[in-house]
């Protein structure tokens, strides 16, 4: 006998409506012909056309993608290293500080991370002449630092589940520690590394606060561009841009989810088949 949890279902419906009505409303209004962003004036795609002919938007998008690509890759390398270290090297001098350093940026308010990096870069520029100006490099360095910490968390969690014996078996069969890492550890945790990279990429692509502090003249990322416009209010072209971004990411996540779900189902089916045939 199963009772229908009516209360739970109504709260869930409310919760999901709360989640999606603002986004849906934004999508609908991106097709608004009116200049006034919140008053409906008929259907139109002109804001999308305007978007694609706006060089500023295109440039900002390219800069954002460049930064996200570079910072996601480097932070994945660093984060994977520290995730493995946290799980596998339980005793070394300075481990307490190390584990503090890889968790602190997670909870540090972004304003503080941003300001401290900005002050640091300015003083460093004054003392040693580098960085001479802020822009692509400083933004990327900042993004690497805080996305690496997210990658660390993901990789660490995965490493704790991984069977230590597999790595020992490889060592036992003649592999040196670094070979074990490339032959066994990294392939086994590769899905976690991939999700780490994706997370780092989206975080970088999305970041406003830290980017705002570490950027310099001439380096406007897409979120910064949106930030500067949004501070002045709601405009239809931002609705269009937002719709494109939300839909792109949404489709990507849904597709990834479906692909992973299928792969998992296929793997389970194969496993069942194997046992039926051989035992």
């Amino acid at each position: 006998m199963k009772r229908r949890p009516t209360f739970l279902i109504s709260v869930m419906i409310f919760g999901f409506a709360f989640f999606y009505i603002p986004i849906l409303s934004m999508i609908v209004y991106s097709f608004n012909a009116s200049r006034l962003a919140t008053v409906w004036g008929g259907f139109s795609t002109k804001w999308y056309v305007a978007l694609f002919t706006n060089d500023k938007v295109i440039d900002a998008l390219i800069l954002s993608l460049k930064i996200a690509l570079v910072s996601a890759t480097i932070s994945t390398i660093l984060g994977t290293m520290s995730g493995i270290v946290l799980a596998r090297y339980t005793k070394f001098r300075g481990r307490t500080l190390f584990s503090g350093l890889v968790t602190a940026p997670l909870i540090m308010p972004e304003v503080i991370t941003g300001i401290s990096l900005l002050i640091f870069f300015i003083l460093l520029g004054n003392w040693i002449g580098w960085p001479a100006s802020r822009g692509f490099t400083t933004i990327t360095l900042a993004h690497i630092t805080f996305s690496a910490v997210f990658v660390t968390t993901i990789v660490h969690a995965r490493m704790l589940q991984a069977d230590r014996a597999i790595e020992e078996a490889a060592m036992d069969l003649g592999s040196r520690p670094w070979q074990v890492m490339f032959d066994i550890t990294l392939p086994v945790i590769s899905p976690a590394i991939l999700s780490g990279w994706l997370l780092a990429f989206t975080i970088s692509l999305d970041d406003v606060v830290i980017t705002a502090f570490t950027t310099g003249p001439g380096s406007t990322t897409l979120p910064l561009l949106i930030w500067s416009k949004v501070k002045l209010g709601v405009t239809p072209d931002i609705n269009a841009l937002a719709t494109l971004m939300v839909v792109t990411v949404g489709l990507g996540v849904v597709a990834a989810g479906i692909i992973m779900n299928r792969a998992e189902k296929r793997r389970q089916a194969e496993e069942r088949l194997a046992f039926q045939r051989n035992d």
Partner: peptide, 20 residues
């Protein structure tokens, strides 16, 4: 002598087959 230099091989309790 580290494990990778020993002429000794082990069959693990969990078998530790490389899944990939």
């Amino acid at each position: 002598v580290p494990p990778w230099e020993r002429p000794v091989h082990m069959m693990f309790q969990s078998y530790a087959i490389f899944p990939h």
